[in-house]
Write a protein that binds this DNA or RNA. Structure first.
Lengths: 205, 205
DNA sequence: CGAGTCGTTGAACGGAATCAATCGTCGTGG
DNA sequence: CCACGACGATTGATTCCGTTCAACGACTCG
C-alpha cells in the first residue's frame, strides 16, 4: 500500500527507476507480462478491468504514496489495466529485485505479508458493502468507513462520480441520495467535504 | 488457501491441534481476538459478516483442504464470523507458531505471499463481477470463471441459494435466470451439475 | 470565451427484490 | 414404514428503486 515500503527495500535509493506519465497514458494493460510493481510518487493511477462489453470497471485508485500491482509479485501477467489519470510520477520496482530484497531482508517479508493481509481485509469490506442493496444505506456505510472516526469528516480527492463507481452505483443515484441524506440532516456537505451528523443515523442504517 | 501449506510449517505434525465442530458451531466471532489460523480437514466452514441489519452476509466458503483466516495473521481481531455448516474437523495453527515457522523457514514466507496475492486477485475478480448489473450476464461470467476450462462443466457443493448470495442476487433471481439460460441453450443442467454450451453465448455476454 | 467535464435534477423504464405459494427431498422420530 | 417437519428449489405476481436518457448549470482550462 505504501510507496515507502518498496523504496526502502532497495539499498541504494538512487537505484529506483522513476517514470513520468502523461494523463491518459497506460502503465500496463491487462494480460501484459507482470515485470514490475509500482508506486505513485505524485499524481494518480486508476486500476481498471475492461469488461467484455467494452466498458471498463474501476477497481482501485492509487494516489500519492500508494503502491499498486503488489499482488502481481507471483503472477505472470497483470490482471487489470493501469492508467494515469493526470500527470503522474511512478516508481518502478522490478519484481526480481523485490524478490531479492525480500530474501535478503526477512523482516521486510513480514511487512509485505501484513500489507497484503490488510488488502485482503479491505477488499472483503468492499465486497461486504456491495451486499447492501439499498443505495442510501450503502452510502452511509461507506461514509462511516471512510470518515475520520474522531472528526467524523471526510474529504474526497477524486470526482464524486468515481466514488459512485467504487460503490457500484450510477452517479445520479449517488448524487440524489447524498442530497437526500443532507435533507434528512444525516450529513452536511460543502463541496467535496462531508461531515457525518449522528442525527437519527442509526435509524437509517 | 491450502491446509497442507500450514501443516508443513510445523516440524512435528503431531503438534497440530485438531478440533471437531458440530454443525452450527462457531469457530470464532467477529471481534474475537485473532489467535489462530485455521484449516479444514473435512467438512465446511462459512465465513460471514453480520450486517448491522441483523442479516449476515456470506463472504467465503472453506471446504475440504482450505485454510481460512490467513489474513488475520497481522490483525488483532477477526473481521467476520466463522461457522461450521456441517460436522467439521479443523486444524488450528497458533499465529505465534506460524510466525515462528515463517521466520525460521524464509522460503515458506514467499509461498505465504503467493497465497495472499492469489486471494487478492480472487477478491478483485469477485468485486469485478458485482459491477455487472445484469443478473444474467453476471451469472454467465461467474459460470465461465468457475467452470473447468476443458470440460466446461462445474459442480456445486453448496446449496444454490448460497451461490446466489455469493453473486449478490436474490435466490429467486438466480433460479429464474438459470432456467432462462437453459431455455436459451446456453447451459445444460442436471441438479447441481452445470455444463456450458458455446451456443450463442458470446452474444449474451 | 468556448469546450469539456463534473455536478445536479427530472422523467420514464426495466429489472431485480420481495412476498407468497407449491413441490421435492431428506432426515427424524414415533 | 410412514408422518411430519425443515429446508432447498421453483414459479407467479407485484412493488420498488436504481438505471438510463435527457437536459442544464457550474466550473476549469486552454
Amino acid at each position: 500500500m505504501n510507496i515507502h515500503y518498496f523504496d526502502q527495500l532497495f539499498f541504494d535509493s538512487g537505484d529506483i527507476l522513476k517514470k513520468t506519465l502523461l494523463c491518459g497514458e497506460y502503465v500496463f494493460y491487462k494480460g501484459d507480462p507482470a515485470k514490475y510493481i509500482y508506486g505513485v510518487e505524485s499524481g494518480q493511477v486508476h486500476l481498471k478491468r475492461p469488461t467484455p462489453e467494452g466498458r471498463s470497471v474501476l477497481i482501485h485508485v492509487a494516489g500519492d504514496g500508494d503502491s499498486f500491482a503488489e499482488a502481481s509479485l507471483f503472477s505472470d501477467v497483470y490482471h487489470c489495466d493501469a492508467v494515469a489519470e493526470e500527470e503522474t510520477i511512478v516508481h518502478t520496482y522490478p519484481k526480481t529485485r523485490v524478490l531479492d530484497a525480500l530474501r535478503s531482508q526477512p523482516d521486510k517479508t513480514e511487512q509485505y505479508i501484513a500489507l497484503l493481509s490488510s488488502q485482503v481485509r479491505s477488499l472483503r469490506t468492499q465486497l461486504e458493502l456491495r451486499n447492501i442493496l439499498s443505495a442510501k444505506k450503502r452510502i452511509i456505510h461507506y461514509l462511516l468507513l471512510k470518515a475520520d472516526p474522531v472528526t467524523r469528516e471526510l474529504i474526497f480527492h477524486i470526482p464524486l462520480k468515481e466514488i459512485a463507481a467504487e460503490l457500484g452505483l450510477a452517479k445520479e443515484t449517488f448524487y440524489r441520495n447524498l442530497a437526500l441524506l443532507e435533507q434528512e440532516g444525516v450529513i452536511q456537505r460543502q463541496k467535496k467535504k462531508i461531515r457525518l451528523c449522528g442525527a437519527n443515523m442509526t435509524e437509517i442504517i
